[in-house]
Design a protein around this nucleic acid. Structure first.
Length: 271
DNA sequence: TCCTATGTTGTATG
DNA sequence: ACATACAACATAGG
């Protein structure tokens, strides 16, 4: 489910737990979301610590916790994979099958559920943010994501279809399958077009629509999970026999870059 | 039964 | 070393 805006929405679901102590940590230690980590140290570090703040960068989230009078902090990274969700429950809630991580507080349970287990938990202790957080690529709405940076990346991935390139988190953190399709539809670029073959005007349009879709998705979905208006491709891409909201022509589907892709052949032509 | 699903990663190949 | 493509991961629902 979660791309940029959905991740931001889920991050805020744990806001009721900020500035409150974690009394207990309940986990399914063998769940795949904990792969590669020391769950014993993880539970020990978080138990008794207070949640200070949280941040989201692309599809990654960071929760910071600190024990009273400790110098070092506990850095909890969460990735929601395909089906992860964060939610809050009352303290007497009985965990369900896919609730793999629960931070128990006096007034709330902070729950991470993930049926398909493609999500991931990261953890570190220390004074400085860990490398897996500090080294994330620049936000697409920051000044560091420039037209020039976009152009350089497209030319390095010259032969890959632009749809596949937009899914690369090292340059487009937070973009997922539906956002990539929405961006290409707005920029009138065919998803199969090789990234290195975009002309100057196309690259500019792509840059503009990347920023626009990120901003609007965060505003509409990230805040309250409202539905985008019907003028978006988003509302039509999964409809049976769906039509392009701008041309009225029938939408087309194919697997591109390993993912089901939707586009409007009337707007997005292969050059 | 078979196909699909808003994601990443390990591995093979060029 | 770098770029590209794709199976694999695990579960539920149509």
């Amino acid at each position: 489910m979660p791309e940029l805006a959905e991740v931001e929405y889920f991050r805020k679901q744990w806001n009721p737990g900020l500035n409150h102590r974690i009394e207990e940590v309940r986990i399914h230690p063998k769940a795949r979301i904990f792969r590669g980590m020391n769950t014993t140290a993880f539970v020990r570090a978080l138990t008794g610590a207070a949640l200070e703040k949280s941040e989201a960068r692309g599809k990654q989230m960071l929760f910071i916790a600190k024990k009273k009078s400790a110098k070092s902090r506990a850095w909890l990274g969460l990735h929601l994979g395909m089906t992860g969700k964060l939610r809050v429950e009352r303290p007497d809630f009985q965990p369900a099958k896919h609730d793999h991580l629960i931070l128990v507080q006096a007034k709330h349970l902070l729950v991470f559920e993930d049926p398909r287990l493609f999500g991931r938990v990261l953890f570190a202790e220390g004074i400085e943010p860990p490398a897996w957080w500090a080294k994330l690529p620049p936000d697409l709405l920051s000044h560091e994501f420039t037209l020039k940076a976009l152009d350089i990346f497209l030319k390095r991935r010259a032969r890959a279809p632009i749809k596949a390139v937009l899914l690369m988190q090292e340059r487009f953190p937070g973009i997922g399958n539906w956002m990539a399709d929405e961006i290409l539809w707005r920029a009138a670029i065919h998803p199969k077009q090789p990234a290195g073959s975009l002309g100057e005007a196309q690259t500019k349009a792509l840059y503009r629509e990347i920023r626009w879709v990120c901003r609007e998705a965060l505003r509409i979905i990230g805040a309250k999970w409202d539905d985008p208006p019907d003028s978006w491709l988003f509302n039509h891409r999964w409809e049976k026999g769906g039509a392009c909201p701008r041309t009225g022509a029938k939408l087309q589907h194919a697997t591109i870059g390993g993912r089901t892709t939707c586009w409007s052949p009337a707007r997005q032509k292969l050059h």
